[in-house]
Structure formats: C-alpha cells, structure tokens
C-alpha cells in the first residue's frame, strides 16, 4: 500500500516564543524551526510500516513556504521515498490546508494518510479530521497503536479516560499521539542520500484549490503574567500559607 505522510515546519518546541509588540503575531524572525514533533512520529510510523513490508511507498507532503523543503528532506532522510511541497507563503488555516491535502490525496491515491494530531504552533488539532471529512475516509485520531489487517486498520486511540480501539475501512486517516512510537534520528549517509530523492513543488493554483478563510486573527498578545511567588522554608510554613493566606485548603 501507499502511505501519505504530512509534515509541518514549526518553531522548535524548545523555543519560548515572544509576541510582537504590535500585536500582529509571534516573532518568528531568526527563530530555530523544525519538524512538528507529532509529524516526526507520523513519518516514523510510516517508515516502520514500510520496513514491515506493509507499505510499498511512503510519500511525504508539506504545505508551507519554500523553506519547508528542509523538513521534507529530513523526512526523506528518515526513510520516506519522495516528497511533495505545496508552496504557499500565506498563513493558511486548517481547512485550507485540508483542502490542499485532499487535492494531493486525489492525485496520489494513498491507502493510508498519517498526520500528527496537532501542530505545536496553532494548537488547532483539526487538519486530520478535516481531511478525513473532505475525502470521505474514516479517521483514527490520537493513535497510540496502528495495525493493518487486510482492508482494515485497527487503531488504538488515547481518549480522556484511557484507551479506545476502533476498526477503520481503508483508505483511512490516522493522526498520531505522542506514545505511538519513538522517532529515529537521521544518519549522515541517509541525509546525503535524501538530497537525491525526488521533491516536487506544486502551488495551490495548480491544484485548483481556493484557500480563502472564514477566520481572521485580530491580535496576538502575551498571556497575563502571574505575580511573583515566594519561597517558603518548611512544610509547616507551606501548609500555614495555603490555609491562612491563599485559603485553598
């Protein structure tokens, strides 16, 4: 089967972002960028399915600026076979991205599409579900285990009270949770080989997709700062403060 994996270029998860003074957004100039951590898990799962002989080809796709080619090359170095970039410098919402991905799904006809459950910049947690809706596929979100058996995928999902297992008809959409796997690192020889793997660049226009949005960001501000706390010297003092000062116990 063919597997399509999506990756997003985002601010590195260790960076503490700063809001721009004019409230127009977050300052991304000269900030370290990386592959969204949930997307790394998605790539790893696809590569493992290929190593187990279940997948025949792993295609990785990103929607974003030209620089997102770096993240696609990383995915190729991790074991993906070829890459597609849908190049757009616009700030696209999840629905627009889902529509672009739907167009790629129509071209590639994968049996399984694996996405991360959310991107750590917008924290939307929408794209996979929207792509499933637009494609008419079943969805297995927040997956911590994926098994392929014939024409079906059995997905164990992380839900609020514990775990739930569902069976999905293929083709299907899976979004990854943190515990699905431990992503590998790219080795230097594989990074070199990845430079020779094919990478196609498409545009929203070429795909015939309108990226108009119904949502506008009016402003972005820093969250209210907490007032500075104090250090207490002993457990007795802590209990006293909680009882008599904060009055929470």
């Amino acid at each position: 089967m063919k597997i399509l994996v999506t990756v997003k270029r985002v601010v590195d998860y260790n960076v503490k972002v700063r809001v721009k003074a004019d409230g127009s957004g977050v300052d991304l100039a000269n900030v370290k960028m990386a592959m969204n951590p949930f997307c790394e898990i998605a790539v790893e799962e696809a590569v493992r399915l290929k190593e187990r002989g279940i997948a025949s080809e792993v295609v990785v796709v990103s929607v974003g600026p030209n620089a997102a080619q770096e993240q696609l090359r990383t995915a190729l170095a991790l074991g993906a076979d070829r890459a597609v970039l849908v190049e757009s410098t616009a700030e696209l919402g999840s629905l627009a991205i889902a529509k672009l991905l739907k167009a790629v799904v129509d071209r590639e006809q994968p049996q399984l599409v694996i996405l991360g459950k959310q991107a750590i910049d917008s924290d939307n947690n929408q794209t996979g579900q929207m792509l499933a809706a637009l494609s008419g596929f079943a969805q297995g979100t927040f997956a911590s285990r994926v098994e392929i058996a014939g024409e079906q995928a059995r997905v164990t999902r992380e839900i609020d009270g514990g775990l739930q297992t569902v069976s999905l008809n293929l083709p299907a959409i899976v979004t990854t949770d943190l515990r699905l796997n431990e992503p590998r690192y790219a080795s230097l020889p594989n990074i070199m080989k990845a430079k020779k793997k094919p990478l196609d660049v498409l545009t929203p226009e070429a795909l015939g997709v309108s990226t108009a949005s119904t949502v506008k960001v009016l402003k972005v501000e820093a969250p209210a700062a907490r007032k500075a706390g104090i250090k207490v010297g002993s457990v007795a003092e802590l209990v006293d403060k909680l009882k008599n000062e904060a009055k929470v116990i």
């Binding site: 629905l95 929408q126 794209t127 579900q129 979100t141 992380e158 609020d160």
Partner: peptide
C-alpha cells in the same frame, strides 16, 4: 474533550467553515 476534538473538525469541514479550537 478528546471526543469533541475528534468529531467537531469533521463537522466544520463538511459545513465548509474553519473551526475555532
């Protein structure tokens, strides 16, 4: 909740609107 996050974006896409999370 995990349920709401699971089904509501599917609803939004079928109505053809962005969801606000």
């Amino acid at each position: 909740t995990t349920n709401g996050k699971n089904y509501l974006p599917r609803v939004a896409a079928l109505i053809d609107v962005e969801q606000i999370s």
